[in-house]
Design a protein around this nucleic acid. Sequence first.
DNA 1: TCTGGGGTCCTAGGACCC
DNA 2: TCTGGGGTCCTAGGACCC
Length: 422
Amino acid sequence: MTKTFALVDCNSFYVSCEKVFRPDLKNRPVVVLSNNDGCVVARSKEAKQLGIKMGVPVFKIRDEIQRHSITVFSSNYTLYADMSNRVMRILEELAPRVEVYSIDEAFLDLTGVESAVSLLDFGRDIRQKVGQDTGITVCVGIAPTKTLSKLANHAAKDYPATGGVVDLCCSERQRRLLTLYPVDEVWGVGRRLSKRLNAQGIMTALDLANTDPKTIRKGFSVVLERTVRELNGESCIDLEEIVPAKQQIVCSRSFGSRIMTINAMREAVSEYASRAGEKLRGQKRCAKVVSVFIRSSPFNPNELHYSNSASATLDMPTDDTRDIVRVAMMLLDFIWRDGIRYAKAGIMLSDFFEPGVFQQSLFSKPVDASKSQALMATIDKINRTGKNIFLASQGVKKAWSMQRHYLSPAYTTQWKDLPLVR
DNA sequence: TCTGGGGTCCTAGGACCC
DNA sequence: TCTGGGGTCCTAGGACCC
C-alpha cells in the first residue's frame, strides 16, 4: 500500500513564539539570536524581506537593526519548548501517528486518511486548529515519502497561493516541483554533497531523482541512495514514533567573555557537568565515559588557536553529579594550558547503561547507590521549581556566563511572568 | 570587541583474531 | 626475503539535520 506522510513545520518558529505575546510587533521585522546573542537564528517575514540572512553574526548587522528598527530577542528556550509542546499535543490529537522531528516540525503518518477526507482539507484543518489554539502558523507538505513531504512543505512556504498546504501525492506534480528546486535544498543533501553533485552535472532535485540509485551508492553512500529512491516516491525512511534513547549527552557553551584563569574554567566546566548530569538522570541512564573539551576562538587570526579534549572511562557507570564533576576536573587539569583566551568549553557523556544493570568486576567493592540517588533526585526536584541548588565548584558570580541582553519573559512557565490583559 | 548548541548516522582504517 | 583471506570490533572523522 502506498504510504502518505505529512510534514508540519512552524513558520519562523522562535519569532512566532515571541510575537504571540507581543501583538504590537505584528507586521514588524523581528529576529531571534542564538545563545550568547551571537548570530541570527530566526527571522520574521519582514526581516527576511529586509535582506537579513540566516546565521549572520549580529555585530555585522548593527546598522540595519538601527535603521529599520528591527526588534531583537535573545533565545528563550523555555518559552519555545513550552510552545512546541502545545503544538505537538494538538497534532497528536489530529493524527493517528506522529513523529516529533525537531522543536518546530513533526512528521505525520496519514496513510489511509484519504479514504475519509481529502488530504488537502486535512492539511487545512491542521493549520486552522494549530493557529487558533496557539497563535502559531504552520505549513503542511503531504507526499508518499518523507523526503518529498519536506519538499512539499518547502513549496507551501515559498508559494503563498498554496495557502500553506501542498499535496504532492500525484507523480506528475512531483516531477514538476523537482525541477524548481536546486539539489542542495533536498533533505539530506548539504553543502559538501551538493558541490560534488554539481561537479557531475547534477544541479536540480530532478537531476538527482533521475540518477541511477546504484551508481549513487557506489560514488557516494547508501544514505544518498535512499534519498534518490525517496525522490522517486519509494518510501525508505519510516516514521519513528518512539523516540530512541540518546547515545550521548553534550553540554557546551561559548562564554559571554573570554576565560583566562583555571578557576573560572573550573566553574564553567562544573556548571556544564551538572547540567549534563541532570539530563542524564532525566533519561534514566548512567554513563561510563566522560569527555571534556576546551578551546580558544577559531575566528581570530591574530591569536594562536588552541583546542584540546580528553576522555576517561569510569570503573562503574554513574549518574551522580559529584562523580561527573570530579572526573571532569581531572580531565580539565590534564588539557589546561596557561596564556590562552578560552572562548568555549563543553562536556560529553557517553556509553550509557540503565541504572543497576551494569556487570560489576569480580574485585570491585559493591556500591550502595541509594544515598546518591536520593540526593540527586532531591536536587533535581528543587531545581525544577525554578530555584537553584548547585555545587560550590560551579561558582557564584559567573562572570563568564552567556549574554542574553534581549530576553523576553517566561510568559508560559512562571506565574510572575504571566501576560496580563488590561 | 563581537561568529550557537545538540544531535545522528555512515565509512574508512587500524588492531586483533583465527 | 617472503608476507593470505576473512572476520569483528572500535574509533575518528566526515557528512548531515534542526
